[in-house]
Design a binder for these strands. Sequence first.
DNA 1: GAAGAAAATGATCAGCGTTCAAATCGCGGC
DNA 2: GCCGCGATTTGAACGCTGATCATTTTCTTC
Lengths: 202, 202
Amino acid sequence: MGRRNQHSREEQRRMALDAADALVAAEGLAGFSMRKVALTMGYTVGNLYLLFSNQDDLLAEVSLRTADAMYEYLRGVAAKPKAPLERLQAIAAGYIGFAQKHSFRWRLMFEHYLPPEKWDHPGLNARQAALFEFVEEHLSPLLPDASPKQLRTAATALWSSVHGLCVLSATGKLHWSGLKDVRPLSDLIVRAFVAGLREERG
Amino acid sequence: MGRRNQHSREEQRRMALDAADALVAAEGLAGFSMRKVALTMGYTVGNLYLLFSNQDDLLAEVSLRTADAMYEYLRGVAAKPKAPLERLQAIAAGYIGFAQKHSFRWRLMFEHYLPPEKWDHPGLNARQAALFEFVEEHLSPLLPDASPKQLRTAATALWSSVHGLCVLSATGKLHWSGLKDVRPLSDLIVRAFVAGLREERG
DNA sequence: GAAGAAAATGATCAGCGTTCAAATCGCGGC
DNA sequence: GCCGCGATTTGAACGCTGATCATTTTCTTC
């Protein structure tokens, strides 16, 4: 073939990302392949490499999409509860719920490991930062006397904690305990952490 | 070739696990392959499949080794500090330290995802349970009035939290913050969580 | 219609996990 | 001493993967 020009480069990228996203959602990272993506979007493998430099690049952009979708979802979740603590607990539970519902997509964000030399990726870092700032924003009413620096530290620690619970439950590493519902645990983490911090600073 | 009988089945398994462990430690999961393992141990690919049913099986056993090594290491770390809180903080920091030092091995335990139908693996579950019980044991002096059930819940929540921090720092997901040392964060998590729980129950 | 630029292809390469007919070896019986 | 049988090990083969790039096809312009 040759120039068909039915779709611009940008349109093709969007089509590829749509296909890749759907493929990950359906089969997970293990079932993913560049060939399948190319087939789905109606092009050939070679063409994919004119749109993305390699598989890692494509997957990183799919992760970005998931991150954005999750962020939007969490904003919605945070809108409901009025009380600050309940709101923070709802956000934590929302995070875990998102991970369970969109298991393969969510796992892509964390199983798709980038080597340290690529940790400076602006898009990914921006999303990570946005998520932590979002937590910070909803944590601040509960820690009115904390300095900005302390607040950031607290938000990082708290969100890492929630993330840990999320990871372990999503990967079956809590299966031994027979635990069914993690909501009590996520509530506990948020509640105890906040209470501990409040006590600490008076 | 044929029967050489220089090594028994059990010896061969040990050799394969040694080779696989070293390979993971050196190149990570990405650089791992059955062929490389076979070559290192002086046998051929086909023979590996008489020792392990497949790659997942082999890697699961490598994970087991790492889990045992980590458990031993943490027991050593816990022996030093006298005060309960400092001991718990040392264990948390020890966990993160182990993950940083043995990065590839540690990551294998979590990146090597098993499908839900294999979550009943007795060996892996036993190790997971042992780790949480170990935490429980060192958490109990700090929560003398907690029931066994409450104690287990608390240990699960606390260790999930520490694990979350460990995961995020190990995969560069905290890189955006410019954070250098995670020890202050792990100390904070342990301290705040314990303080919050103590306050909660009087 | 011809020429040149742009776009898309797909054969190709090296590597992967996994399988299994075939080849090889050790040993008991003659 | 050697033969044959069963236990043991091999390695070619299959279908897949990510990635490359000379080749082919198409569009635009003259």
